[in-house]
């Protein structure tokens, strides 16, 4: 099974992940993952539980640096740099499980993400335009928010500095259907301003949002292409994603 991404004809790639291998402890988690993320797109990583989608995001941001392979942001290789420097190059990371800071207020959760003083006031209108609820909750401790609100906050936090690329890990996880609708709408809105690499188990959500996909199976990227082609390709869906 050749693991090469199909060539992307039109816009340049913001991010190119080329054949990365990542170990966590003694476990080989990624065993050849390649992903292209074209400028302005929403690209989704698909695959079963434990396939290595989350680790791919973590390898890009540098929290689990790849042992080999390359991660190129706008053509510049960034693998092996410490996470804080990779992030400062303009990558926003929204981890799974709504990793907001519970002891910090909503405002502090946003302010801590500032890279330049005043980021939040500059971008406040944009952020609260997408997540109007957060404005109302601004003084509350993050820990007091509902699951959906925490997830909104985690995404909003990644929007505070001007990030050219967002890595969003399972934004729909554990949320009620109504909230998932809101979240999808939010991601649609913000994708007008930034490129998104998404991990999403919910295939319906993924297929409605994403322009492109890459399927990861046991640590390898096995197939990628246009979402529009995938939804017609029932064989691939059944084979890699189970009954869809």
């Amino acid at each position: 099974m050749a693991a090469s991404p199909s060539p992307t004809p039109t816009p340049a790639n913001v991010l190119e992940v080329r054949d990365i291998h990542t170990d966590i402890g003694q476990f080989h988690i990624l065993d050849g993952v390649s992903v292209d993320v074209p400028e302005g797109s929403i690209t989704v990583l698909l695959g079963r539980n434990g396939a290595g989608k989350t680790t791919t995001l973590k390898s890009i941001i540098g929290l689990t640096p790849p042992r080999s392979g390359a991660v190129a942001l706008r053509g510049r290789e960034i693998q092996g740099e410490p996470a804080y420097r990779i992030a400062a190059r303009g990558i926003g990371y929204v981890p799974e499980h709504r990793a907001i800071f519970r002891a910090l207020s909503v405002e502090e959760n946003l302010r801590i993400a500032e890279r330049k003083p005043g980021d939040l006031s500059r971008r406040g209108d944009f952020i609260f335009g997408i997540f109007p609820d957060l404005k109302r909750l601004i003084k509350l401790p993050g820990g007091n928010l509902s699951g959906g609100q925490q997830q909104m906050l985690a995404v909003a936090r990644a929007l505070v500095p001007e990030n050219g690329l967002l890595l969003i890990d399972e934004p729909s996880e554990g949320l009620a259907p109504v909230i998932i609708e809101q979240m999808m709408e939010a991601i649609r809105q913000l994708s007008a301003h930034t490129t998104v690499l998404l991990v999403e188990q919910n295939f319906i959500m993924a297929s409605q949002l994403a322009d492109r996909y890459t399927i990861i199976e046991t640590g390898r990227s096995v197939k990628s292409g246009r979402m529009a082609d995938l939804v017609k390709d029932e064989e691939t869906i059944t084979r890699y994603l189970g009954a869809a």
């Binding site: 929290l63 990371y93 990793a99 800071f101 519970r102 801590i112 500095p161």
Partner: peptide
């Protein structure tokens, strides 16, 4: 202070603080 905020955040999750672009 900002550094205090970073400390309180880091007590919970220093990895996430790093991923925000802060040299923890």
């Amino acid at each position: 202070t900002r550094i205090g905020m970073i400390i309180r955040a880091g007590v919970q999750d220093s990895e996430m603080v790093q991923a925000l672009g802060i040299n923890v």
